[in-house]
């Protein structure tokens, strides 16, 4: 190999590796940029793709502008008047059109807003509601197991009785479920208050201590069972 010309910077200012002074900052800036970029992307996905972002606040427009604030809140209908199977089955059913027509065959029976309901009643076709609180198919959530053991509707669904249009209040992610499953005491209430959205613990009661009694009374499973995979997934 012939003696090549040296590539080092020379006194006269020529040479391949003579960079402007600013190039001194290239490496650290690139390092910060990469690390920062990774942090940014991670944070973006963690926050942006987290159930708290994606699920909370989901408020689809329903085919009938049914207002829970009016029916459950102002009129005081119990949740179970419509969602009848919540104490017996895994799913909380939507009421059949017949339930609506119990009142609305006489009340507001000419309202435009209720036209889809009347059409459904006369034709026999269902009203296609949009599901708001949705879980993955591999999650076998059972309403009756919760409702029958002192978990109030408001714990997961929020103050439905104040919503004109129902929106999802809780992320319903596995982590969120586990928060309660690990320490259910703070989320328990007497069984007869399960559908009472406005229920408060007695003044001055410690949430945990109050729940300990209920947990024993309702024979809620121990920690190992509550956090076992098979309890919710099969």
């Amino acid at each position: 190999m012939s003696e090549g010309k040296s590539k080092a910077p020379k006194a006269d200012g020529s040479g391949r590796f003579l960079f402007p002074r600013g190039a001194n900052y290239l490496a650290p800036v690139a390092g910060v940029g990469v690390v920062g970029g990774l942090l940014y992307v991670t944070t973006l996905f963690a926050l942006g793709a987290s159930p708290k972002t994606l699920a909370v606040g989901y408020q689809p427009i329903q085919p009938v502008p049914y207002s829970h604030a009016l029916h459950a809140g102002k009129l005081g209908l119990d949740c179970r008047y419509c969602h009848t199977t919540v104490e017996k089955t895994a799913f909380a059913n939507l009421p059949p059109t017949q339930t609506c027509m119990n009142c609305h065959s006489k009340i507001w029976d000419k309202s435009e807003k209720l036209k889809p309901v009347r059409d459904s009643w006369t034709s026999g076709e269902p009203v296609h509601w949009i599901k708001i609180h949705n879980l993955a198919n591999y999650v076998y959530f059972n309403h009756s197991a919760h409702v029958n053991h002192g978990v109030g509707c408001v714990e997961c669904h929020g103050r439905i009785d104040r919503m004109d249009v129902v929106s999802q209040q809780q992320p319903l992610s596995m982590g969120w479920c586990l928060d309660c499953h690990r320490v259910p005491e703070t989320h328990l209430r007497p069984k007869d208050q399960v559908t009472n959205m406005g229920w408060q613990r007695p003044q001055g009661a410690d949430p945990f201590v109050f729940g300990v009694d209920l947990r024993k009374q309702y024979k809620i499973h121990d920690y190992a069972y509550m956090t076992s995979c098979y309890t919710c997934h099969r």
Partner: peptide, 12 residues
């Protein structure tokens, strides 16, 4: 989080 799903209860 989830695609839109519909619920269609019976009329009766």
């Amino acid at each position: 989080r989830w695609p839109e799903e519909k619920l269609a209860p019976y009329s009766t």
